[in-house]
């Protein structure tokens, strides 16, 4: 698309959407959001960028192959699930670590559940970007 306004706007929108998608991913456990929604927003961000520039530029911005991104996501999700059996619990049983937890404060939680959600995020993001880029290639 050769509209300057769209191009400038798209660049701005791309950054905002990307940050927003990660925000949605991270807050997902306690507020509406999560890996699926975050991944979809991220995909929208890249599509906005792809419409303003071109496929090659989008791939450059993405740096990695979207298919690889999706497969990495699936692997991360699987690995987070395998943590459970490592500590003799069920497959995909959530594991939690509270950094600096005190009597009153739960501290900074790190969990396999968040890892899993990141896996979901990457899979959805990668799969959809791959689809859209492949489709645009055939224009």
């Amino acid at each position: 698309m050769n509209s300057l306004i769209y191009k400038v706007g798209a660049n701005l929108l791309f950054g905002i959407l990307l940050v927003f998608s990660i925000f949605m991913l991270l807050r997902g456990h306690n507020e509406p959001g999560g890996g699926f929604i975050g991944g979809l927003i991220g995909a929208v961000a890249f599509i906005v960028y792809a419409l303003s520039e071109n496929i090659a530029a989008t791939r450059r911005v993405l740096r990695v192959n979207p298919e690889h991104l999706a497969v990495t996501g699936l692997t991360i999700a699987l690995c987070s699930g395998l943590l459970g059996p490592l500590v003799q619990e069920g497959l995909f049983a959530g594991q939690w670590l509270f950094l600096g937890a005190t009597e009153t404060d739960k501290g900074w939680p790190i969990s396999s559940v968040l890892l899993f959600d990141i896996g979901v995020y990457l899979t959805v993001l990668g799969a959809i970007i791959a689809l859209v880029l492949e489709m645009e290639r055939h224009l």
Binding site: F36, L40, V124, A127, I128, L131, E134, M135
Partner: peptide
């Protein structure tokens, strides 16, 4: 929620 996302994937497949 998951069904909607899967629906998108399958629709894309049919479209292709």
């Amino acid at each position: 929620l998951t069904a909607i996302v899967i629906g998108l994937g399958l629709f894309a497949f049919t479209l292709f």
